[in-house]
Amino acid sequence: MEELYFAMCSKIIMAYKRLVGVIPVKDGRVVKSYGYKFCRPAGDVVSALRNLERWNADEILLLDISRQARIDPAIPMLIKKSGIATPLTYGGGIRCTNDVNTLLAAGCERFVLETIAFNAPEKVKELADLVGAQALIASLPLTGFGASLALEQYYAKRFGLAHEVLDPSLICRRMNELPVSEVLVIAFNREGYSGSFNLLGNDLCEKGFLSDINKGIIWFGGLSGNIAGRLLNDPQTTAVAFGNSNNEKELALTAIRGEFSRTGSAHHVRRPLLR
């Protein structure tokens, strides 16, 4: 029996890959964001959370793009009010263990770290000691820059956008050193423009640049069902994320799930029944 158990555990078979619904939030309201430069109001947080749960999102990512370098105190209350039972990840302004404790108590399961992931890795370690690395995701907002990649970061509103060209191998090394479970790769300029996902010119060649990352990758920024389907076929992909499209039509995620069959990737994701 024991041999059988260890034989079972040694099989490298993964859980279903996830279809993540992203809710961009600015100043406490849901927005449709375009490359993080332009925003249009798109409703309230509680309704957006409940909609994505109703559409069977595998996970919801609440992404505060206000760049306030702190957690909006209204957000934890809105999360509690929604009462959702879908895995909820939060990103934006997380700096310390207090932030994480507040969000955890409100019902968040996982946390996206960006600024501190690059500028204060010791704080990431502190957070991992508190909630475990399985609860942490590093954000990697990238644009293509010639034949290389550039990291695009807003440290806070007052500092503006920092653009740093980095060798892809350095990016991979930095990610591998962090005690996080996954990396959220964002095609920064393409965010909000459905079907435009691309970091380096054409095809999905950017994936080769990041193949040395030894963690699962969540892709986000301008994905279409077709592109996401192709990305799902890659073993390194653990999830694909969609933002604005959730606000453009009813049951958006259900429609995207349907598109995966065209790329032969439907078996990677679960097919829950609508209720």
């Binding site: 993964m14 859980a15 890959k17 996830r18 399985q134 963690k215 699962g216």
Partner: peptide, 13 residues
């Protein structure tokens, strides 16, 4: 830890 498992087990099973 999950032996020989490449990533964390984050997802639906």
């Amino acid at each position: 830890p999950l032996s020989d498992y490449p990533f964390y087990n984050n997802g639906w099973c």
